[in-house]
Design a protein around this nucleic acid. Sequence first.
DNA 1: AAAAAGTATGCAATCGATTTGCAAATTTAG
DNA 2: CTAAATTTGCAAATCGATTGCATACTTTTT
Lengths: 147, 147
Amino acid sequence: MYLCIAGIPMNEKQLTTILNARSVKPTAMRLLVLDMLARQETAISLSDLEEQFDKVDKVTLYRTLKTFEQHKIIHSIDDGTGSAKYALCSEGCECNPGDLHVHFHCQLCKRTFCLTEYTIPAINLPHKFILKEMNMVLKGLCEDCSN
Amino acid sequence: MYLCIAGIPMNEKQLTTILNARSVKPTAMRLLVLDMLARQETAISLSDLEEQFDKVDKVTLYRTLKTFEQHKIIHSIDDGTGSAKYALCSEGCECNPGDLHVHFHCQLCKRTFCLTEYTIPAINLPHKFILKEMNMVLKGLCEDCSN
DNA sequence: AAAAAGTATGCAATCGATTTGCAAATTTAG
DNA sequence: CTAAATTTGCAAATCGATTGCATACTTTTT
Ligand SMILES: [Mn+2]
Ligand SMILES: [Mn+2]
Ligand SMILES: [Zn+2]
Ligand SMILES: [Zn+2]
């Protein structure tokens, strides 16, 4: 499989362990959000995440995602659609250039996939250019939409 | 050189030729905008472009850039900063995945470079994924900022 | 246990880039 | 020259992202 998001729900103990491992206090809100993120098959936007809850404050959700991102529980994906997508990081991920994977955005179903098996190819930059971050997004039709 | 933008001014005849070649009517405004684009060493945002004129309507500028982009006179670059950058296409560019080059955004001086000599490496997508577009942005420090 | 300090949450408001609506000006076609 | 099509300018709307601030909740200190 090439998806970084298993879409497999975790129990509260597992969720708490993840937050603790990343030094983020496991509040009720954070456990709810992390649980919802773990259920996603593909990367999700703030707005889409909001819709998956009955009632939740979007700004709190926003700040929760920011906190998760800062602590490398999730990574944000700029797929060029104008709204950032978020997906769980794999265990021990440090989001370094060497760890980064390619993302794929389907122009038909609008889903954004983590291609975790596809590391971003290295580029030999011109002299004196120093690489700190990378983003590689492929767009087209996904497996479900290419027929 | 690895920059797609020469930063070398063109005369009005050359500018008109480019517009005609791409079936865009060479209005006064379009010649002015194309001229300004040709003078840039690096990709430029709508707001920065606006600032380079004494007095110009931003929406007209916006629509001019859209027209140029549709006719492949320029390409837009999503460097992840939140504001699109624009740069001249090379002659005969059709903006196909195979033609696309890597872009570099300097986190210090905030300039975005076209690395036209660096084509985006091909990725063998998973089965049934169809590629239509690509974007690869590297970030870090440019040659002027890495000391 | 109570008070104080630190952290998280909820709601209103702002910001900035992009996009749209529409009327006036300009260009092209008949 | 007149009518139609295109381009331009200004106002306003849209939308995602971000901030300010008051309230709620947790943790630490007395
Ligand atoms: Mn990912
Ligand atoms: Mn370029
Ligand atoms: Zn799809
Ligand atoms: Zn620089």
